[in-house]
Design a protein around this nucleic acid. Structure first.
Lengths: 151, 151
DNA sequence: CCTTGAGTTGAACCTCGCTTCAACTTGCAG
DNA sequence: CTGCAAGTTGAAGCGAGGTTCAACTCAAGG
């Protein structure tokens, strides 16, 4: 097995610091074999897991959520393919929602902030159908809080 | 001016805790007028700013980046519309990149993780053109780290 | 006036996602 | 076999993004 990676190699290849990789391992996000001298040796497939982790983080997914997703994977052998389909579907919805949010953000930029008037005094005239422009008494935002205990 | 909002009202309407709103103010993300008795009174347009902040956070943008964007806005009067156009463009690129990442993530889920084999032993056969499957010696990830000092 | 709920401040504290440090061990090149 | 970079651990520290607390003030109804 000349394919095993040291932590330094995985770090270099993934762009993630060794300390972060150890941290991920403690959280159960990735795993490593050990040499006789207790040093970590990574299967090359871990590189893919790390890539997945980093990308998910970039779009605002917490390590805990990522672990949940990763936990439901081939820990044993047979992947119970239907469970994964459900997992995949759940994530798909979340990701689609993220895309919706980003698009909304971008539209805000272009439509209102982009024109220099965040104050809405004039923008509301220009964006009659805008959801966010609805600032009278009524429904409110339902965007979940990323850093709240019981959010 | 019956349109001014108390902090409690803004909190209720935006779904953001009063403590968070004060925190945002300290960071210069939002602003408030004061009553004679020193209490905050928010213009209704702040609701839109808060919405913007929350949405941006959801997709992994830091408060500091958000402030930078918001700072370049009608602090004085004339918005120097061309500067905003540049700002808007810069954000557009970042957001487009986020969408790319999310799509990649979703494809990973559907194409490889979704099938239950994150190990790539079989997936690489099914995804010959996959960028992330390139795990031999060569180029590596360039996804920036969200929580690193000099990332 | 008095009460009471909402608001004020600063300081302390919390979780997340790491990094840094100290003290020590492995593993490989020469 | 030596030397030294690279690895190991646990504990402490850090920055972001807030929450909680104590002590106090404001605002509106009765």
């Amino acid at each position: 097995m000349q394919e095993a990676l040291t932590i330094g190699q995985l770090a270099a290849r993934s762009g993630v610091a060794p300390s972060a990789l150890r941290y991920y391992e403690r959280l159960g996000l990735i795993r490593a074999d050990r040499t006789g001298g207790n040093q970590r040796r990574y299967h090359r497939s871990e590189l893919r897991r790390v890539a997945f982790i980093r990308i998910a983080q970039q779009v605002g997914v917490s390590l805990d959520e990522i672990r949940s997703a990763l936990d439901s994977l081939p820990a044993s052998r047979t992947p119970t393919a239907e469970d994964w389909a459900q997992l995949s579907t759940a994530w798909r919805e979340g990701l689609t929602e993220k895309i919706r949010l980003i698009t909304r953000l971008r539209d805000d930029l272009d439509g209102c902030i982009g024109c220099g008037c965040l104050s809405l005094r004039r923008c509301s005239l220009y964006n009659p159908g805008d959801q966010l422009a609805n600032e009278g008494p009524g429904p409110r935002l339902t965007v979940p809080h990323p850093h709240r205990p019981s959010g």
